[in-house]
């Protein structure tokens, strides 16, 4: 079997075995339940720009899914793979490393796709959230999802490779991720945040991921910080994180593995 096919199959098996794992399933369902309760509770309130909170939070949580998959799920999976020995086993197999990387990428994409689809389906059924209606909207959706994922995956891979255990990874990235979730306009529109929080949030890719996705889903930028779609800035900030991650990660990893 060729390397790419083997990697894809590995990703499918990984994701399938995670989905069948009771603990993992519990964590995933808990996230969806929290989202469901929030939209039932405050979903009908306006979020600005002619959008209600259900639509706002659905898009926000999709952005957070991409962000947390890269910065939280990925390092925990990699740390667990190292702790348990899967990484070493794969390093000892012919073609093991490319197969591992492909498999991880596939399982991460599946994780993002399944979660996002579930939230969009729930948001659509309960709050009438509609998918983008134009080709331009779909194009925006795709590049924002892709660049947003790229902005966190190298960093997540690096964190996962450097931390000793999955627990340590969860402890290190858990709190900052939660703070960013609150500060970056996933649940609460940024316009309601104090100015210093707004400034800090705009440094990180999560805010721009959400902003870009709202541009794909919504017509009016009336609810945004600067009352305008700033897709150029979104691309620049997420692109800068992606480049920094891709430059830093291999360099740091080499330093760590040489020890």
């Amino acid at each position: 079997m060729n390397t790419m096919a083997l990697g894809i199959r590995r990703g499918l098996i990984e994701q399938n075995s995670i989905l069948r794992d009771r603990k993992e399933l519990g964590t995933n369902i808990a996230g969806l339940v929290m989202y469901l309760m929030l939209i039932l509770w405050i979903g009908r309130n306006p979020a600005g720009g002619g959008v209600d909170m259900t639509a706002f939070m659905t898009v926000g949580f999709v952005a957070f899914t991409v962000f947390s998959a890269g910065i939280m799920t990925l390092p925990m999976l990699i740390a667990a793979d190292r702790e348990e020995g899967a990484l070493l086993r794969l390093r000892l197999l012919p073609r093991g490393v490319p197969v591992y990387i492909t498999g991880r990428a596939v399982s991460l994409i599946l994780h993002i796709a399944v979660h996002s689809a579930l939230m969009l389906a729930i948001g659509g059924a309960i709050g009438g959230v509609a998918l983008p209606s134009t080709l331009y909207g779909w194009a925006t959706l795709i590049w924002v999802l892709g660049l947003g994922a790229l902005s966190v995956i190298p960093l997540g891979a690096m964190i996962g490779a450097m931390l000793p255990t999955a627990k340590a990874a969860a402890a290190v990235v858990g709190l900052p991720t939660m703070l960013l979730m609150i500060a970056s306009g996933v649940m609460i529109p940024m316009t309601m945040m104090p100015a210093p929080v707004q400034w800090i949030a705009q440094v990180f890719p999560l805010y721009w991921q959400g902003h870009g996705l709202r541009a794909a889903f919504f017509d009016s930028p009336g609810g945004e910080l600067h009352k305008a779609w700033e897709l150029g800035t979104a691309a620049m900030v997420m692109g800068a994180w992606a480049v920094a991650g891709m430059v830093l990660a291999p360099w740091l990893l080499r330093r760590v593995t040489r020890k």
Partner: peptide, 9 residues
């Protein structure tokens, strides 16, 4: 001490 792939069949 390999404990890898605990969830796989």
């Amino acid at each position: 001490n390999w404990h890898d792939h605990p969830r796989w069949q």
